[in-house]
C-alpha cells in the first residue's frame, strides 16, 4: 500500500484539511444572511420564477458569497492570525494551505457565476461576479487595510444579494431593487462599527484602520447614530414606491426607532458601559435586518395572495 510507505512529509503534498475546514472557508454565518436577503429579493420581485430556477439562483448566490469568503481568508490569513476572533480560521490554524483556499475560492467563483448566468440571466450573473470582485479585491485587498471607510464602501458587497435575486427574476434592476441594496448598505456601518467599538484592541493589534482606532470612539458613536437614522428613513423606501404597505411599514417604524434609540444611548456612554451597549447594538442590528426582511416578505405575500391589507 503506497500510503503506508509515506512519511509525514509527503503527506503534506496532498490536502490535510477536513471537509468542515473547507466549509468554514465559505463563512457560513455570512452566507446565511446572504441567502436570506437574496431569497427575499427573489421572492418580492414582480413576475415570479420557477421554484427550481429560484433554488439554483439562491444556491449560486450563496456559493458565490462563500467563494468570496474563501478568497478573503486566503488574502487575510496574516491578519486573521493576530485577531482573537479569527485566529482559529482554517488557514491561520494551519489546517488548510493558502493556495488551496485560493483555488477553492476561484473555482467556486467561476462555477457559481457561470451556472447563475445559464440558469437565469447574465445581468444577475454579472452582478454576482461584480460582488465577488468587489468583496475580494476592492474590499479585502484594497480598502480594508487602507481606509477607515473600509466597511462603508465594502458594505456594498453585502448589499448586492437581494439585487441579484431581483435581477435573477426580472432580468433588470429597478428602484425597488436599489432600495433593498441601500437598506443593507446603510445597515453595514452601524453593524460593524458597533463590533469594532468593543473589539477595538483586536483591530489595533492587526493594524486594520477601523474607525474607532483611527478617528476615535466619539466620532464612531456619532457616525453610528447618523447611519442608523438614515437607515430608518430608507427603511420606508419600499412603502413609498408601493412595493409594500402598512403590514411592513409598522414593523419598519418600530424596528428603526428602537435601533435609533439604542444608537443614541450608545452615543452617550463610555468605558465598560459603552462596550456593553456596543455589543447590544451589534446583536440588535442582526435582528433588525432579519425582522425587516421578514416583514417585507410577509407584506408582499399578503398583497399577492390576499390582495393586500393596506
Amino acid at each position: 500500500m503506497a500510503y503506508a510507505e509515506n512519511n509525514s512529509d509527503t503527506l503534506e503534498t496532498v490536502s490535510t484539511g477536513r471537509v468542515e475546514d473547507y466549509f468554514a472557508l465559505l463563512k457560513p454565518r455570512v452566507m446565511s444572511l446572504v441567502v436570506f436577503t437574496g431569497f427575499v429579493g427573489l421572492l418580492v420581485a414582480p413576475g415570479g420564477v420557477h421554484p427550481v430556477i429560484g433554488f439554483v439562483a439562491i444556491l449560486c448566490i450563496a456559493i458565490g458569497a462563500g467563494a468570496s469568503g474563501a478568497l478573503n481568508m486566503w488574502y487575510d490569513a496574516d491578519i486573521d492570525r493576530v485577531m482573537s476572533r479569527t485566529m482559529n480560521r482554517p488557514i491561520p490554524s494551519g489546517r488548510i494551505a493558502p493556495g488551496e483556499a485560493l483555488g477553492f475560492g476561484m473555482t467556486l467563483s467561476v462555477f457559481s457565476v457561470a451556472i447563475l448566468g445559464l440558469a437565469t440571466n447574465w445581468l444577475a450573473a454579472g452582478l454576482l461576479a461584480f460582488t465577488i470582485f468587489f468583496y475580494a479585491v476592492v474590499y479585502t485587498m484594497w480598502l480594508k487595510r487602507s481606509t477607515s471607510q473600509n466597511i462603508v464602501i465594502g458594505g456594498a458587497a453585502g448589499a448586492f444579494p437581494p439585487m441579484i435575486g431581483w435581477a435573477a427574476v426580472t432580468g433588470s434592476v429597478s428602484l425597488d431593487a436599489l432600495i433593498l441594496f441601500m437598506i443593507i448598505f446603510l445597515w453595514t456601518p452601524p453593524h460593524f462599527w458597533a463590533l469594532a467599538l468593543y473589539k477595538k484592541g483586536d483591530y489595533e493589534a492587526a493594524g486594520i484602520p477601523m474607525l474607532p482606532n483611527v478617528a476615535g470612539e466619539r466620532v464612531t458613536q456619532n457616525q453610528i447614530v447618523i447611519y442608523t437614522v438614515l437607515l430608518t428613513i430608507t427603511g420606508f423606501g419600499p412603502v413609498l414606491t408601493g412595493l409594500v404597505g402598512w403590514f411592513y411599514a409598522i414593523p419598519a417604524a418600530v424596528l428603526g426607532v428602537v435601533f435609533s434609540v439604542l444608537a443614541v444611548r450608545l452615543r452617550f456612554s463610555q468605558g465598560a458601559e459603552m462596550k456593553r451597549r456596543a455589543r447590544v447594538v451589534f446583536t440588535y442590528s442582526l435582528s433588525y435586518l432579519f425582522v425587516l426582511f421578514v416583514a417585507l416578505l410577509a407584506d408582499v405575500g399578503l398583497i399577492r395572495w390576499f390582495g393586500g391589507v393596506s
Binding site: 500510503y3 509525514s8 477536513r18 473547507y22
Partner: peptide, 21 residues
C-alpha cells in the same frame, strides 16, 4: 514488505480526512 506496517495515528487520521473529502 510494507503491507503489514502499522499506520501511525497521524496517517490513519489523514486517510480518514481524505476519504471524507
Amino acid at each position: 514488505t510494507n503491507d503489514n506496517k502499522v499506520l501511525t495515528e497521524q496517517e490513519q487520521d489523514f486517510i480518514k480526512r481524505r476519504r471524507r473529502r
